[in-house]
Design a protein around this nucleic acid. Structure first.
Length: 124
RNA sequence: AGGGUCAACUGGGCAGUCGCCGCCUAAUUUUUAUUAAGCGAUUAGUUUAUUAAGCUAUUCGUUUUUUAAAUUUUUGGGGGGAGGAAAGUCCGGACUUUAAAGAGUAGAGUGCCAGGUAACGCCUGGGCAGUGUAAACUGACGGCAAGUGCAACAGAAAGUAAACCGCCUUUCAAAAAAUAAACUUCGGUUUAGCGUUUGAUCGGUAAGGGUGAAAGGGUGCGGUAAGAGCGCACCGCACUGGUGGUAACAUUCAGUGGCAAGGUAAACCCCACUCAAAGCAAGACCAAAUAGGGUUCCGUGUAGCGUUAGUGUUUACAUUAUCGACUACUGAGGUGUUACUCGCAUUGGAACCGGGUAGGUCGCUUGAGCCAUAGAGUGAUUUAUGGCCUAGACGAAUGACUGUUCACGACAGGAUCCGGCUUAUAGGUUGACCCUCAUU
């Protein structure tokens, strides 16, 4: 109990809160609710761990420069880290769409926020 | 002062809060092994008061404890954490596995010379050619005098050169005037030619015109029917020798040659030299579950099948015994069904060995390393001494927010590691050199 308490009150992002291998990813892909956006697609599936986990799929095809891919990863992780208590017991996988490459940095942040706000509304 | 060339460096800073990835350290937790002790159970022996209890030994489980280890958990502290191109993946190496005595062919690459280097297609110095007033920059820069091929259009001709126009000669025809000779009525007439002009024609001719990116040295004089390196002078070119240079190459040195051979090898090709292939998803190690392979051991019974031995007849059968987890059934035993019993369901079991999937560990950062000083060298580079350790992730870490400051921040993110090349790049700093202007 102490562990979960600590996780709710803290803003850290340890390895437990990430999807780490292909099995974990494919579990989400198998059966997930989808939330679309111009920039991103969010796949959501409940888990029974008691905490949320985040996975990122940023295709080289859509975002060609490694620099850009890193930027998107960091921005998404940052939002997840700061709002981790609201996501409860869900596995999230965020995919990028083709249009991301043409967006500016401020646009990317805006789309990111919209997407997660819609998800938060859904789960209440 | 302005403009330029080359080279080197830098690639926002500071503070706070939250967060990520290794390392060191202190504690904490877990696991494993180990030491000792307690409790419970099993088996054996033994004693007594014998349906029981005690003692000794053995094996197993469990709790506490000692020590040690660990790729365990969590927390505190300390310290570190992308680039000049990390990029493109275009060369060259190290390393790994496979192959491999050596040689040749094919194929690929390189291509002025010398040096540097682990190596290179890189770098340095030099030569030659081109560009620029210059500093400098650019160059696949061996061979077309081995062979084969290619070249639009134009042009007569595009290659052991070639005759369209033009120029000249021969021959033929025509023309008119002049000239010469003969005759003459002195007006002329006739005849003639290696003369002139025009046309045709046999030839000569590369001076001139015209075509083209390119047409077989240039200028002048001589020469000739006209011309022509046909001859000569000067310039240029080629070759031989000398001289300088390690060499490429140079040569205001000497001689020889009239001068012959166009371009294209990033066309085939020839010559010289170099090259085994695949890549860290290389590769090495540990290794769960499930299925499957091998070896050994273990059985309640029946039947089949086979092994071995005996007997009978006979040369293949019968019969008796024996062994066998090879096959079928059975289910003693095992497993499951909450503890026990029954029942039910299900099934051969155990140990070891080898391969090996998921997963994990290593490879993985101490290296042709960096810095300083001194020596060698024009330089690339190298030698010596001293000092330093500077990312190591693996669904993949350097970020976010706030404040402040300035010149307001470009291109852009490691993935085995080095040496290069190429490409992208806001701005800033430094040095050397060149040109122009001004001043002295």
């Amino acid at each position: 109990m102490q562990k979960t308490d600590w996780r709710l009150t803290n803003e850290s992002f340890p390895r437990d809160n990430r999807l780490l291998n292909a099995k974990q990813y494919s579990r989400v892909f198998e059966k997930a609710n989808k939330i679309h956006n111009k920039a991103f697609t969010l796949l959501v599936r409940k888990n029974d761990l008691g905490h949320a986990r985040l996975g990122l799929v940023i295709a080289k095809k859509n975002v060609k420069q490694a620099n850009q891919r890193n930027y998107i990863k960091r921005q998404v992780r940052e939002y997840f880290r700061l709002h981790i208590q609201t996501f409860r017991s869900y596995d999230l996988v965020l995919l990028t769409r083709r249009d991301v490459a043409s967006l500016t940095k401020t646009d990317i942040i805006a789309y990111r926020n919209k997407l997660f706000e819609r998800f938060e509304k859904q789960i209440g």
